[in-house]
Amino acid sequence: MKPRRLRNVAAQTALIPSWLIVIFAYIGTIAWTIRISFTSSGIFPHYDWVGLKQYDRLFDSHRWVVSVQNLAIFGVIFIVGCLVLGFLLAVFLDQKIRGEGILRTLFLYPYAMSFIVTGLVWQWILNPTLGIEQAMHAWGWSSFSFDWLARGDRAIYLVAFAGIWQSAGLVMAILLAGLRGIDEDLWKAARVDGIPAWRIYLSVVIPMLSGMFVTALVLLGIAVVKVYDLVVAMTGGGPGISTEVPAKFVIDYLFNRQNVALATAAASVMFVAVFVVVGPWLYSQYLRRRPGEAS
């Protein structure tokens, strides 16, 4: 047999594009972004050193604080909403019902569409004058008023709502696959033992699906941190800055407000936050379980 080094030449060669991408597009860009965040760059980067000055500015910026708050509100509503609705849909679809295939297809189709489409549709339905409000008036409920999309203190909830519409099907699909994986005998055993179905879901099924819940949680969490298109399409960040989010903050300051240093500082904060949360989870999920590949 050839020595291992020779055998692997072709494999190593095949990985060259990936190595380039990893080194330049991933590691290099992150380092570069972090470096710029310590400079006083404006439109173009220049490489002086101002310490944490940009970070001070960032957290003093009202717009950033609002963005982070919005992210928290959006995140909680979106994630809890998707998990609860997705779980209920999955459980109900798993009750040997008629038309399951059609319903399943219906619940998931929004996930095939982009956040841009989602945002635009709901922007139209929730239109403060011509949308639901006018429909209710047309049906005779003339005092009905629904203008949340135009209200700075409420619009972010609607953005989260639209997000739930788009992504709840994802949770349903993941959990339904999990429910289908549960041994049929388990349900039979529970019936023989006289344990009611809701009790089985609570005490047995949900713990059994914990891995799937975590997967769904991670997917939704990533969507939350990256949320950008939905806001751009639905509210454009408004009214005012009331639905701004961090991802949009970065893009706006990079390309429209031309404050590269502040934008990269914001991006770096996002990076560190995600890394701190995802790093340990990734480690436990993918690396710890396969010690054989460590070499």
């Binding site: 190593q12 597009a25 972004t33 990256k226 996002m270 890394f275 990734l282 993918y286």
Partner: peptide
């Protein structure tokens, strides 16, 4: 291949990191 795990780990991490970090560079 040697160090293949580094590629894999970095890519894996990269899947989770918000694009905003990469865009400007």
């Amino acid at each position: 291949p040697k160090a293949g795990n580094i590629v894999l780990t970095t890519l894996l991490l990269g899947a989770f990191i918000p694009y905003q970090v990469f865009i400007y560079p």
